[in-house]
Simulated assay, not measured.
Amino acid sequence: MPKATETVLEINLNYLEQNYKYLKSKLAPNTMFLAVVKAFAYGSDQVQIAKKITELGADYLAVAYTSEGVAIRKAGIQTPILVLHPQEVNFEEIVAYNLEPSIYSARILDQFIKYTSSINKEDYPVHLKFNTGLNRLGFLKADVPQIVQKIQETTTIKVASAFSHMAASEDLTEKEFTEQQIQKFKSISNTLDGLLCYSPIKHMCNTSGILNYPDAHFNMVRSGIGLYGFGNDAKYDVYLKPIASLKTVISQLHNLDPNQSVGYNMAYKATHKMVTATLPLGHADGIYRIYGNQKGFVFINGKKAPIVGNTCMDMIMVDVTNINCKEGDEVIVFNEVHTADALATAAGTISYELVTGISQRVNRVFIF
């Protein structure tokens, strides 16, 4: 790739393919694969990622909100799409675009049955979400008889899958808790199948679940962060490649004398003669204020340059006193070597927050 001449997010679809194939290698041949493409495909580009991952053979896609699924449908992608957090106001669009809602409460179940009945739908696919310990969304095991009764009283919907979500699958110190979740979901699944008299798809594993709990793969697994190159454990860095590289350039260099300040509120003052570089990205681009004041850093000509002063809306300043560089030089914020995980950890957050926060005003460039 040519050197960056502006702030860009390079998205390497070859790395996406590598990550997908690695995760698939952990599954039994008949286990289905659901690719999570919510939040602009974890800050990259949901349409391009959905197209590529579908070409590679993903069986399902998942989004958080209905609007995300609509955008994928409008791009011509016909793969089944699970909407993880629908609201009643979304039902018309969900059906119009052949999206499949997660049904996570009695209220949403009643409302969706009412809506599909009003438009004479038959066997519309829905996905039942069960809470086994995350305590975020979902039915409990005690709800199963009432759920099934409502489903059997209508012909408008049919259960495509039942699923749950692991709360700490990446943390092996919480293995006992995760195993309890798995056993709860198995018990729920057995009860549900017995009352429904058919067996929907079952899925529980996220990326870390795929890697750490092979006995819980069931009929299908879900992967989000793993597809984008993060395995939540350093031992997977050899196999999973971050697909996104955030690059920018040096706009201007400044020579500072001791006690001169940098940026808003004089948050940083030079203790010695120093050189700073101003870069054209800031908190409106996803490099938030938490990365300021030497918590965050970038790489210029292979050397680490800490962020100094407060992050501005459209700019950050970095210390390049000991770096041989000039205006116009390329700057690496993160890539497959200098990872988003390392940058996020330094600021006390997680890679998920950093990569999903990259603003849509940052130009996306694709590597095929």
Rank of each mutant, 00 (worst) to 15 (best):
T5I: 15
L9M: 06
L13C: 06
E17L: 05
Q18G: 07
Q18F: 03
Y20P: 00
K21P: 00
K24I: 08
K24D: 05
S25G: 02
L27H: 06
A28G: 13
V36S: 08
K38V: 02
G43L: 00
Q48I: 07
K51A: 13
I53R: 05
T54A: 06
G57D: 04
V63K: 10
G76H: 12
L82A: 12
L82H: 14
L82Q: 13
L84S: 05
L84T: 02
H85Q: 14
E88D: 09
E88A: 12
N90A: 05
E92V: 11
P101S: 02
S102T: 04
Y104W: 14
I108V: 01
K121Q: 15
H127D: 12
K129L: 11
N131T: 06
G133Q: 03
L140S: 15
K141D: 14
D143K: 06
Q152R: 10
E153H: 13
T154N: 04
T155K: 10
T156D: 13
A162H: 01
M166W: 13
A167S: 10
E176R: 11
E179S: 08
K184Q: 07
L196Y: 08
I201Q: 07
K202I: 07
H203G: 03
C205W: 05
T207W: 13
D215P: 08
A216C: 02
H217Q: 13
N219V: 12
A234R: 14
D237M: 06
L240S: 14
V249W: 09
V262Q: 05
A267R: 00
H272M: 04
G282W: 02
H283P: 09
G292I: 01
N293Q: 11
K295H: 12
I300F: 07
G302D: 10
A305R: 05
A305C: 04
G309E: 14
C312Y: 14
I316T: 11
M317P: 00
C325H: 09
E327W: 07
E327V: 04
D329G: 06
E330A: 12
F334V: 00
G348V: 00
G348R: 03
I350G: 08
Y352K: 13
Y352I: 14
E353L: 07
V355F: 01
G357Q: 04
N363Q: 15
F368Q: 13
